[in-house]
Simulated assay, not measured.
Amino acid sequence: MLRIAICDDQPKELQIINEYITEYITKYLDNQSIETEMKEFDHPDSLLTAMEAESFHLYVLDIVMPMVSGIELGKEIRRLDREAQIIYTTTEPQYALQAYAASPINYLIKPIDKQQLFDTLTLAVSKIDLSQEQTFTVKTAESLRVLKLSDLLCCEYRNHAVSFTLANGEEVISRTIRESFGEYCSSILKDVRFLQCHTSYLINMRRVERFAKDSFTLRSGKVVPIAAKQYPVVRDQYMNFLMAKEVHR
């Protein structure tokens, strides 16, 4: 599913952009069977709060907003997610140079030209990898849970079970597993975003905040150890992941 966030403190502008994107989805995405979810935010703080529990593929941001400017908002989005696509919309062309600190895909001047927005959306969608909607099914003591891999921060093997830490802070614990941790998580490790950095830990590299010789620090603040003997391999795999992301941006 393609998730889109629009943030503009002017209700009329928010409505116009929503209508344009809705028309674009109907014309160009529905016939490609691309599911979409669009959310509106009338203040940057509300978007920042939402981002604590969920992520978006595409952000359409106004520049001049109260408390937190669209430029600062874009920088924070980029800090959290190097792959997200950002489109700026504004009445103020003088901020264009500053805006590129967040690596936006385009900077559109209001009133928005609909075809220009459509062309920018097409470019943005072409750069988004929707394969991240892959899932993993976990048998817990109470039920079956289907977890989105994009929501997963890390997995930890302990007490013959696997603990899954999600972006919203929730912890999901599997029933006792009989196979090895690596075998249990083998389908997750086929996803290029995931790395086993220790015999008992697996991380989502998209969720890394800091990389050190002995550990990864995730966005939640959780510190995941790196096995000393595995460090050279872990370092190379993580660096390759970062370089691949830069190539595709």
Rank of each mutant, 00 (worst) to 15 (best):
E183F: 07
K190L: 09
V234F: 02
R175S: 08
Y201K: 00
N18G: 03
A228H: 10
R79Q: 08
T91F: 12
D62L: 06
I77P: 02
Y238S: 04
I25H: 05
D8T: 04
V224W: 00
L73A: 03
A101H: 11
A99C: 04
G182C: 10
A212C: 15
V233G: 05
I71C: 07
E72P: 01
R158M: 12
H248N: 10
R78F: 03
P11A: 03
S180H: 06
T137K: 13
L149S: 12
E170Q: 11
C197M: 04
Q15T: 14
H43K: 12
D9K: 03
A96H: 02
T165Y: 15
R210T: 04
A161C: 13
Y238M: 09
V125Q: 13
S150R: 15
E83G: 09
I188Q: 10
L117Q: 09
R3A: 13
C185H: 02
I77Q: 02
A99W: 02
M67W: 14
I112H: 03
T36M: 05
E133W: 12
F181E: 12
I177Y: 05
K110I: 00
E13I: 01
F56S: 04
E23G: 07
T140L: 03
D191S: 15
A228Q: 13
T217Y: 01
V247S: 10
K148F: 10
Q132T: 12
R235Y: 07
D236E: 15
F118C: 05
V146P: 00
Y107I: 05
L48M: 14
R79S: 14
L202G: 01
L218A: 06
T135S: 07
M38W: 04
L108W: 08
T140E: 05
T199S: 15
V138H: 01
P232R: 06
A5P: 06
Y95S: 07
Q115G: 07
L149D: 12
H248Y: 14
Q10F: 09
H160I: 07
I17H: 07
S131N: 10
A227C: 13
E83M: 14
T26V: 11
E183P: 00
Y20W: 15
E83T: 09
P225T: 11
M243Y: 14
D9N: 13
D62P: 04
E133C: 06
E183M: 14
M1R: 10
